[in-house]
Design a protein around this nucleic acid. Structure first.
Lengths: 114, 114
DNA sequence: CAAATATATCACCTATTTGCGATAAACAAG
DNA sequence: CTTGTTTATCGCAAATAGGTGATATATTTG
């Protein structure tokens, strides 16, 4: 088991790099959008926004059996990914789909899948 | 700051549920695919497979500056998500896109984005 | 100013992800 | 059976994600 060939292999098998990898811009962008879509709650929020066109945080808290802070967190991630945007209607915040980035994401996924 | 109204709010603001949420089948499926796509290395692997149609683990280890075990992990996740499949060509393994699930994912994303 | 309302953020905990080196496993060839 | 080749898996550490209750912030209204 601990033969010489194993040792030789082990050396060849070692870490290739410590630097962070450089990917193409499109690859990074697609991965970022996909990551934001990678949770069922966030998919459901976006579907909800597509139907309603817009809605408030409170509406979503009523729809999902989650704490308000949890819903807020998911909205934050969607906003960071650029998929939604919030418009202040004090004291509420109206969230809508960010149509510009939505189209970018749509195109990225479309061309990715041929 | 610690007024009565805060206490009343705090109670209303508490956890809504401890059970796991039930989502629609499509929502779960889309989230699962998206999660698998949520890392640039995995996007790059899939793009590579789309070009080459198929390739071995070793080919990918040469393409990416990552340890062999790391590449293997990413392949495992893509396989678990159903996006790729491995065919044994001992001692190698030839990975290809799972066309059936690929089309399912494609349709899910397409109808999600309208 | 005080109270109410709506939302965000903090501190905390647990679970998952990402990466690695080392090792195991499967098989072909000598 | 031993060696070499290729890939998977294990064990670990660091980082990130997901959820919560508590608290902060901002604004309207009395």
């Amino acid at each position: 088991m601990f033969t010489i060939s194993y040792r030789i292999f082990a050396i060849r098998n070692m870490k290739r790099s410590l630097e962070t990898i450089e990917y193409k811009k499109d690859t990074e962008a697609l991965a970022k959008f996909a990551k934001a879509l990678g949770h069922p709650t966030r998919i459901a929020i976006l579907k909800h926004l597509e139907n309603q066109s817009c809605c408030f945080t409170g509406d979503l808290v009523e729809v999902f059996p989650l704490a308000q802070s949890t819903v807020s967190q998911h909205l934050k991630e969607l906003k960071n990914a650029g998929l939604i945007q919030g418009e202040l209607k004090p004291p509420k915040i109206k969230y809508c789909i960010n149509q510009e980035n939505w189209n970018i994401a749509k195109d990225l996924f479309q061309s990715f899948f041929d």
